[in-house]
Design a protein around this nucleic acid. Structure first.
Lengths: 118, 118
DNA sequence: ACGATGCATAACGGATCCTTTATGAAAGCT
DNA sequence: AGCTTTCATAAAGGATCCGTTATGCATCGT
């Protein structure tokens, strides 16, 4: 597992990450979560017009892809973007394709908010 | 269709783009093309250890995803990264998730090595 | 014209994803 | 305890993707 904030991410990791973003519904979740720090599963399901089990499944894929993180509070599960991981994968890909003037080290950090960096 | 170099890219466009990157073989193609300006289909097939028809299929997906561009010369087809489109999509995504400290202006520039933008 | 080369498409199993409804488990409320 | 809410999992059908081999089309060389 890539340490949060570290560069990391092999090619396979990267493809898994992009797979998380390779679906309109999941991308809509990302878009929505960008506007609100945290949202519950059922809220996201309603917003995206999909069944709750389906949303649960998509969120699982997003979690594996390290696009979101989930936090359980009682019977509710709150979802939020994992901006650190997203940015890290971003950097990995940028380095992969060797963007000019984009050495991975110079890329900005993702997010000042640091939740439990376990 | 998004004009090359323009910003463009709706959510659907974006998911199609990421789908292009959501497969290890295709990502390997991208990685390889980052090292050499242009490569032929059969060269990529051999490098990735897949059959030529399969590579042809992957390249078609990559083309639809606006990750690569192909150029026919005689009976050969040369592939190259579409760095402009990739950068544009990544800018769109970055704006979508509103990276803190990652304003679109700082995102990957398209021109790495100077390959003719013909 | 003929054969060889380079790429695209078709056809085929096998695996995975997308989406639904139905069911189950855990937590909160009365 | 009993009911409601919230999420996860299972089952099932349809679609798509992954990989292969076989075939077709266009191009190049002789």
């Amino acid at each position: 597992m890539a340490l949060p904030g570290s560069i990391a991410a092999g090619a396979h990791d990267l493809s898994v990450h992009f797979e998380g973003l390779a679906n309109p519904t999941r991308l809509l979740v990302v878009e929505r979560l960008a506007l609100t720090p945290e949202m519950r599963v059922s809220e996201l399901a309603e917003f995206c017009q999909v069944s709750q089990p389906r949303m649960s499944w998509h969120l699982r894929i997003l979690r594996k892809a390290q696009v979101i993180r989930t936090r359980r509070e009682g019977r509710e599960v709150f979802c939020r973007l994992d901006r650190e991981a997203i940015a890290a994968h971003f950097r990995s890909f940028a380095r992969l394709v060797s963007f000019a003037g984009l050495p991975a080290a110079d890329l900005p950090n993702a997010n000042p908010i640091s939740e439990g960096t376990s």
